[in-house]
Amino acid sequence: MRFGLADHQYGWDEQRRWRAAQPALPVGRWLVDPLVTTFGPDLAVVTTRFRYAGTGRQTPTWVRLSVGRRIVTAHVSEPTDPPTGSGTPT
């Protein structure tokens, strides 16, 4: 499952088709305050904000499989209202 800014894909086939049709990310994209939370050696959840042509946030979940580490679910969004809080992870 991948939730994008204006799209969503269910399953590997839909995600592969979507990725193949997308242009490369714009130059200048960077991550802000990434936070990696691990649950043993085989699972990690990453939360971060990103910037380029606006701001957004993303949360991929990584799992170690027999073929290597893979994102098994992801959420990407752009906030519609200014965020509240300090913006610093605690």
Rank of each mutant, 00 (worst) to 15 (best):
G54Q: 11
S86C: 10
H75L: 14
P60M: 04
F3M: 12
G4Q: 07
D81P: 00
T80H: 05
F3Q: 09
V45R: 13
W30S: 15
A74Q: 15
P83L: 15
D33L: 05
V46T: 12
A21E: 04
R69D: 08
A24P: 08
W30E: 14
P89F: 05
P23D: 11
S86L: 08
L5T: 02
V76E: 07
P34T: 02
A74G: 05
E78G: 03
Q9L: 02
A21L: 06
T47F: 03
A6Q: 06
T37H: 08
G4W: 03
F39R: 09
G4H: 04
R70P: 00
T59W: 01
H8D: 06
V36C: 12
V76C: 03
G87F: 07
T55S: 14
L35D: 14
T47K: 11
V32C: 10
W62S: 01
T37A: 13
T88Q: 13
T84R: 15
P82E: 09
W12Y: 06
L65S: 02
R19I: 14
G54K: 11
T47L: 09
A6V: 04
Y52F: 10
W30N: 09
R17Q: 07
L25I: 02
T88E: 15
L31T: 13
T47E: 12
P79F: 11
P83Q: 07
R2L: 12
G85A: 05
V76F: 06
W62E: 01
S86Y: 01
V27R: 06
I71T: 01
V32T: 11
T90Q: 14
A24D: 15
A24Q: 13
L5M: 07
L25Q: 04
P26H: 09
A21W: 01
Q9D: 03
T59Q: 12
H75E: 05
H75T: 06
L43T: 10
A6E: 09
Y52L: 08
P41I: 10
R49L: 13
R69W: 14
V45D: 01
Q22K: 15
G40Q: 03
R51V: 15
G56D: 05
P60D: 05
G87M: 10
T59E: 05
T90R: 12
L25K: 04
T80N: 03
A20S: 14
V63R: 11
L31D: 15
T59N: 03
S66R: 07
